[in-house]
Write a protein that binds this DNA or RNA. Structure first.
Length: 487
DNA sequence: ATGTGC
């Protein structure tokens, strides 16, 4: 990026701010935030990134930022951008992120907090042993070779369940019912394959975690019931992605697009926004590789969930029912009606919707909802919002008429860098503090723990309030952690 | 996020 320019924000409603188009911006920027969140809404760089994304060829409606927006690679984290495929709209790996299909899976345990309490330490010890984590290798499922990996990449969680690592309900309640169809495992680089072989069923590091949580408050009784959640219930939340495989795919395709971009006559204000038309060979190649990583990430969460299920069954006798599994780093080809623009006003258009640190939130009645939720009048897609370590997480539901292509926030969003956080607290102290609040901690490294201190993140309650206020989603339940297995 | 730099 060049000189730091600070885009001017104009408040439109209490939860919606606009960046008017200037320079090469094709559409406005729109930031959803409460007045309280806005001053620290990620700093000038994130807002400049919102404006930069608005220059991309084919972008429609607006370059959106969710209430948890912060600075990222090219696109902001907490960004949503849709491009019109028929109008030369582009796809950009930076609009998905390095951790392709990073996401969240939530299970409801058939046990309540009081009955679980005496078994908590033993269960956390069991989960600690059953959950490979931290940098590098170690995984639940050591694949036999590239042939078996190809099956994972093609069929995702469906293949894992076929192989005995789960039950049908796990697929019924997974985004895309466990897998997307357009993956092309043969097109991956040798390096991506090599990195994928030894990490299937592993958490990774950073803000990834497996938590045991308790439903602290139900805000929407009907939706909670439909999702299988009740107050006082124990849950298991898993937050992780596609590990080194997704990272390598992103690296490979950013490189390829940097080369190919000029041939399409595309220039961007920031190299990290490398992109090509969706309807082009390199565009299709990226989307097929991205789909492979999406399937890998679903299988990854499926295997970690199955391992946790085994621990719960053995030590508590309680079963784990999947509430939902949803990504917050993905681009998808979807049909939306967009007012104005190149197409006829309000006509359905095929768009490439980039969600980076943003969660899809389908409205009630949408055909892609799980079958048992599809016909309920006021219940949309379950939206899983992980808090930072030691803080609350949320389950939201998609609402009709969402303003950002059926998308909402994805989590708390960082305010302190990893380095700043590690300087502010020692991992040992932090563990003690969390334990004193009744949260059992099983870490991977002391430094990793310190980097994830709650104070390094925005207030998740405020983020969710802003998402609700902006009409992006509605709260269903608030969950609080009682034990965390940290990547 | 990430074999924590190309």
């Amino acid at each position: 990026m060049t000189q730091a320019r600070v885009p001017a924000l104009v408040q439109e409603t209490p939860y919606r701010y606009q960046i008017e188009p200037t320079g090469r911006m094709r559409v406005p920027g729109v930031v959803f935030a409460s007045p309280g969140l806005l001053p620290e809404v990620g700093g000038d760089q994130a807002l400049q990134q919102v404006a930069d994304v608005a220059t991309l060829p084919g972008i429609v409606d607006a370059s959106y930022a969710m209430p948890d927006v912060h600075w990222g690679y090219g696109f902001p984290i907490g960004g949503v951008a849709a491009t019109d495929i028929a109008e030369g709209g582009v796809v950009s790996p930076g609009g998905v992120g390095f951790d392709i299909s990073c996401g969240v899976r939530l299970y409801a345990a058939d046990v309540d907090a009081a009955d679980f309490a005496p078994r908590k330490e033993a269960v956390l010890d069991g989960l600690s042993r059953s959950t490979p984590r931290g940098m590098g290798k170690g995984a639940v499922w050591e694949l036999s070779g590239a042939g078996q990996l190809a099956k994972v990449l093609a069929s995702g969680a469906r293949y894992a369940v076929e192989q005995g690592h789960g039950v049908q309900r796990d697929l019924d309640r997974c985004e895309d019912f466990g897998a997307v169809d357009d993956a092309d495992p043969a097109a991956l680089s040798e390096r991506a394959v090599k990195r994928g072989l030894h990490q299937l069923g592993s958490l990774g590091s950073g803000n990834h975690f497996l938590e045991v949580q308790v439903v602290d408050a139900v805000r929407d009784q009907a939706a909670a019931e439909a999702y299988g959640l009740r107050a006082g219930q124990v849950c298991v939340m898993i937050h992780c992605g596609s590990r080194g495989l997704g990272h390598q795919i992103c690296t490979d395709h950013v490189r390829a697009m940097e080369q190919a971009m000029a041939g399409f006559g595309i220039t961007v204000p920031d190299r990290q926004l490398a992109c090509v038309p969706v309807d082009s060979d390199p565009g299709r190649a990226y989307l097929r590789a991205m789909a492979s990583a999406a399937n890998y990430a679903r299988a990854n969460r499926q295997l970690l969930g199955q391992a946790a299920r085994g621990v719960f069954e053995r030590l508590t006798g309680a079963g784990l029912d999947l509430v939902y599994d949803i990504s917050h780093n993905l681009a998808k080809v979807e049909t939306h009606r967009v007012a104005g623009g190149a197409g006829a006003a309000g006509a359905p258009r095929r768009l490439c919707v980039h969600r980076k640190g943003a969660t899809r939130a389908l409205p009630p009645g949408h055909p892609d909802l799980p079958a048992d939720l599809r016909d309920l009048p006021d219940v949309g897609q379950p939206v899983l919002i992980p808090g930072s370590m030691g803080t609350a997480s949320y389950v939201l539901t998609g609402v009709p008429g969402g303003p950002a292509f059926a998308s909402t926030c994805h989590g708390a969003g960082r305010t302190l860098s990893r380095h700043q956080a590690a300087k502010a607290v020692r991992g040992q102290e932090l563990r003690q503090l969390l334990e004193s609040r009744g949260i059992a901690v099983r870490g991977a490294s002391w430094r990793g723990l310190a980097e994830e201190m709650p104070e390094a993140y925005k207030d998740i309650d405020a983020v969710v309030e802003a998402a609700e206020g902006a009409g992006l989603a509605r709260a269903v339940a608030r969950l609080v952690p009682v034990g965390v297995v940290k990547g």
